[in-house]
Design a protein around this nucleic acid. Structure first.
Length: 682
RNA sequence: GCCGGUGUAGCUCAGUGGUAGAGCAACCGCCUUGUAAGCGGUAGGUCGUCGGUUCGAUCCCGACCUCCGGCUCCA
């Protein structure tokens, strides 16, 4: 009746002294193949060990199955070794870099004379398949000392370099933190001969046969040890999984992410483009994208009004002195568009008679807002003063990094600066964080965690004491939300620590969204003051915050989150009327006119296409409501709804239909209407 | 910025050392249609830009630009 009891994959197993973990696992009847095959064990110290490991005393270990995160990492790491072996088979002159497992896959870096081609990848895949089929055993061997390792690895200059790395901060899979040096020999299944070896701390699969499914995905260059000053190696990326099914599922996730790519959807849905004539990283929004953007902004404006913000506007360009005062020119000049010299005058001989002024496009809004604060004397009664602006900024991103709307050279921040007293700071930040989370939820993002970026001593200004104070307040407030809090040491900007809200999208990717920074430095630099109740002059605390970060980027995140199917309140076209024949055209136009009067964005498709074709067209355009009207509907004074998912509700009286659509949009419901949800709602 | 790839009609892509084609989209007709592509026609391209090789270049070579994937960077 019931299936025979299978030991849970994460079973604990006792390994008797002097015997191998693998033997104990087999003894316990744990799977040796399939997706749950035990690939390594975790010892009582939490360290992963090969199945060939034989402890000196009895220990209880945890069996690690292939289909766990650790299991997959081991598969991927071993797959990286197989890749390296294949590369050296086909390109004997290739020198080895490093080859770690990464999220969803692995890579290996090689120093080769000519970069790999897609064709090379195919050849390498076949070579890897042969190695896997041969069932080579991964055999761990310990070097007596560094000299022995150096001798054996004399032909591998990069590995030699790794041997001499010391200190736990150098965490690479080749070297163990304890300083123990090991090498893995790949041993021929029958002859016992060592076929290939690689410096590595392990652990590894018992044999190459434990790599059930893999694929090489792409090639790229990468600087040796991640440093721009070092030579570039050729990197090959791959992925490996516990089963063919898991690999297929992964490839499907990648394909889904591609389908959702905002650059693709932006073109397909006619939302925005990047004309070459304007320049890299500078977007134009088409009418349909413009509507979405306007809705995003309008709603944000309304919420900010309610939350006590005041709206300001500032120019896109300013004299350099402002950014010298703020420190931006000192810290970020390379990220700014080069300055331009204006108003210079020369005499007939070309000598400068009147020196020019340097102007810069603004990379940030805060200095301008500071000037607004400083435009007149400020009283404590005015604080907190919250200045908000959709401020467009320009940053000179390096040519290789611009990426659609998510990494652009010109973008608009929903930027606000809050000036408050030291006593107000904590309460202000706490309510701000709630405001941010609430607003993000209103746009349909609801899975968050927080990140606290703290001071980088090399790249910052201000006193230790000020940083500590600001950081402590941020930490306290972040902890009070109850959300998961991740530390990001050294990740802060030069002038302030920050909390960032990370949001998870519909397919599980996380995006950095809102940021909140407590700035105790810029008020000093700008010598900002307010008059306290006792008549003394005091320095305000300044809080920087952006919810969207950049509107363009937020737009892109939502576009990908919704896969182009925006909620009805954001959709560029909310309703399309589709007459079944020309006879219903006028009737549909009337229904549309009624909707339009009520502020609904509606179009009527009165083209020559057949109804089926129109449904297809507007389904692909992700229109939330299609109103199909045939003779029967006209006769009944009704319309028939068709939704994105193909479901329908027929024969809805016009007045009900109009009211229901209006209500749906007005609620800012973030789900796509379906026959079921729509019927339930009206 | 660095490495590699890429660029042909609005989009997706064929193609050739003798100046180009398909599907979709657009436009025009016919059909009058009940829930994801009806039929026919028309129009549309200095083959990314500039230079070189050649009798002749969209094709071969070089430089530059765009975009894509990485690396570095991301206030």
């Amino acid at each position: 009746m019931s299936a025979p009891p299978v030991p849970p994959a994460s079973a604990t197993v006792r390994v008797p002294a002097g015997t191998t973990a693998g033997a104990a696992v087999r003894e316990a009847g744990l799977p040796a193949n399939g997706p749950e095959a035990v690939v390594v064990v975790r010892d009582p110290d939490g360290r992963l060990r090969d199945l060939a490991w034989a402890p000196e005393a009895d220990v209880d270990v945890e069996a690690v199955p292939a289909d766990s995160e650790d299991g997959r990492s081991v598969i991927r790491h071993s797959a990286a070794h197989v890749l390296a072996q294949a590369v050296q088979q086909l390109h004997p002159e290739a020198k080895l870099g490093i080859g770690p497992p990464i999220r969803d896959g692995f890579y290996y870096d090689f120093d080769v004379a000519t970069p790999f081609t897609p064709d090379d990848l195919k050849k390498l895949e076949s070579a890897m398949k042969k190695i896997i089929k041969a069932g080579q055993r991964f055999s761990r061997r310990r070097f007596a000392d560094k000299d022995e390792a150096r001798k054996e690895l004399a032909d591998e200059p990069y590995k030699l370099e790794l041997i001499d790395l010391k200190g736990p901060e150098e965490d690479v899979v080749e070297i163990d933190a304890s300083g123990e040096l090991t090498i893995y020999d790949n041993v021929h299944a029958h002859t016992g001969e060592t076929v290939w070896s690689d410096l590595c701390r392990g652990p590894h699969l018992p044999t190459t046969r434990y790599i059930p499914a893999f694929s090489l995905t792409r090639t790229a260059a990468a600087y040796w040890r991640g440093d721009e000053k070092n030579p570039q190696l050729q990197r090959i990326y791959g992925t490996a999984w516990e089963s063919q099914e898991a690999l297929d599922a992964y490839l499907e996730r990648v394909a889904e992410a591609e389908r959702r790519d905002h650059r693709r959807l932006g073109a397909e849905l006619d939302l925005f483009s990047f004309p070459d004539q304007i320049g890299s990283g500078l977007a134009v929004f088409h009418p349909k994208g413009g509507i979405v953007r306007k809705e995003l902004e309008d709603y944000s404006r309304r919420r900010h009004e309610q939350a006590g913000y005041e709206f300001v506007n500032t120019p896109h360009i300013t004299k350099g002195q402002l950014f010298r005062t703020s420190g931006h020119l000192e810290w970020y000049e390379e990220g700014m568009y080069p300055g331009m010299i204006l108003d210079e005058e020369r005499d007939a001989d070309g000598n400068v008679r009147k020196p020019g002024q340097d102007y810069y496009l603004k990379p940030m809004n805060c200095p301008m807002h500071n000037l607004i604060f400083d435009a007149r004397g400020r009283s404590y009664r005015e604080l907190p003063l919250r200045l908000f602006e959709f401020g467009t900024v320009y940053r000179y991103e390096k040519s290789g990094v611009v990426h659609g709307l998510t990494r652009a050279r010109g973008f608009t921040q929903d930027d606000a600066h809050i000036y408050c007293t030291e006593e107000q700071m904590e309460g202000e930040i706490a309510s701000l964080l709630q405001f941010v989370l609430e607003l993000l939820r209103d746009y349909g993002l609801d899975d968050f965690y927080l990140e606290l970026s703290t001071r980088n001593p090399e790249k910052s200004i201000g006193s230790d004491e000020a940083w500590e104070r600001a950081t402590n307040v941020l930490r306290k407030v972040a902890e009070e939300t109850g959300l998961h809090l991740v530390d990001d040491p050294g990740g802060a900007a030069f002038y302030a620590p920050k909390i960032s809200v990370q949001a998870k999208d519909a397919i599980g990717r996380t995006w950095q969204m809102s940021t909140i920074q407590v700035d105790l430095m810029l008020p000093d630099r700008f010598d900002l003051e307010y008059t306290a109740s006792d008549g003394s002059r005091k320095r305000p605390v300044m809080i920087h915050r952006a919810l969207f970060g950049s509107i363009e980027r937020f737009f892109a995140v939502l576009l990908e989150h919704y896969a182009g199917a925006f909620p009805a309140w954001l959709a560029p076209v909310q309703v399309v009327g589709i007459p079944v024949t020309d006879d219903q055209r006028e009737y549909v136009e009337q229904v549309a006119a009624t909707l339009r009067e009520r502020g609904v964005r509606v179009e009527v498709d009165s083209g020559d296409d057949r109804m089926q074709k129109k449904i297809r067209t507007h389904t692909l355009q992700k229109v939330p409501f299609m109103l199909v009207v045939g003779a029967r509907d006209v006769e009944a004074g009704a319309v028939s709804f068709r939704f994105r998912d193909g479901t329908q509700v027929n024969g809805v009286p016009v007045a009900d239909a109009v009211a229901a659509v209006q209500a749906w949009i007005g609620r800012r419901d973030n789900t796509s209407p379906t026959a079921e949800s729509f019927t339930a709602a009206h």
